[in-house]
Write a protein that binds this DNA or RNA. Structure first.
Length: 229
DNA sequence: TGCCAGGCCGGGT
DNA sequence: ACCCGGCATGGC
């Protein structure tokens, strides 16, 4: 009988030992400032189905243009915004999505820190009402910008758990999220690092086209799907 | 060169 | 309730 909690805990230790801390947000975004938090929210939207390197180019453009504030972004015309974020791809839809997000912040008073300062579930629901903010983006904002312990699931998480036999093909977002959140202590710093490590493992060892996960640091945890959750 | 990236929405069945 | 096309750039 395999304990999912034990397996997920051991997986975390294995990844951390092998790859080390990934230094994701908020450290990467200039710590705990309001601008840093807003930058994390923007990054969460811009990185939808997009390489992080491209997102950094877009954020650099926004910073150089002095547009890393809710007020500035709210004033910026769509055309100007889409041009600044062009390197992140899907620039027209993302300009609209960023505008939608900023509008919600402005309507709540315009202070990003106040906007984020709500219980996780409440904040998540508010974020999900914004067109362009789906589950992963909402959870990323709750975890990385608001610093609250919610688990972020992404394509890598799904693929890695699937390949190691811990979920079946049709496990959906909420099920996978529940798997982690019930098995692990609600620790924001650990959830933060855990998701970053899954992305790192996915990039290096669990690529989409690769026949299998060679040299994967998680092969020790392979087991039959029936033994999982 | 083609494939891929830290998804999400809206319209059609 | 699912399924699918559309959205787009830059790096390997």
């Amino acid at each position: 009988m395999i304990s999912t909690a034990q397996t997920l805990t051991d997986m975390y230790r294995a990844m951390l030992g092998k790859l080390g801390p990934q230094h994701w947000w908020p450290a990467a975004a200039g710590a705990e400032s309001a601008e840093g938090k807003l930058e994390i929210c923007i990054g969460a939207v811009l990185t939808q189905n997009t390489n992080w390197g491209n997102v950094e180019l877009a954020i650099r453009n926004l910073r150089r243009a002095g547009c890393l504030s809710a007020a500035a972004l709210d004033e910026l015309p769509h055309e100007a915004l889409s041009e600044l974020i062009r390197p992140a791809g899907y620039f027209n839809v993302k300009a609209r999505r960023l505008k939608n997000f900023i509008r919600a912040v402005v309507q709540a008073g315009g202070d990003i820190e106040a906007f984020l300062d709500h219980p996780a579930g409440e904040l998540r629901d508010a974020l999900l009402k914004i067109s362009g903010v789906g589950r992963e983006t909402a959870d990323s904002i709750v975890l990385y910008a608001a610093g609250q312990a919610t688990f972020v699931v992404d394509a890598y998480t799904h693929r890695i758990l699937l390949r190691h036999g811990m979920i079946d093909e049709e496990a959906d977002y909420e099920q996978i999220k529940e798997l982690f959140e019930t098995a692990l202590p609600a620790d924001a710093a650990m959830f933060n690092e855990y998701h970053a490590l899954l992305v790192a493992v996915g990039k290096s060892f669990c690529r989409k086209r690769a026949p299998r996960c060679d040299a994967c640091p998680l092969t020790a945890f392979d087991h039959d799907p029936a033994l999982g959750a």
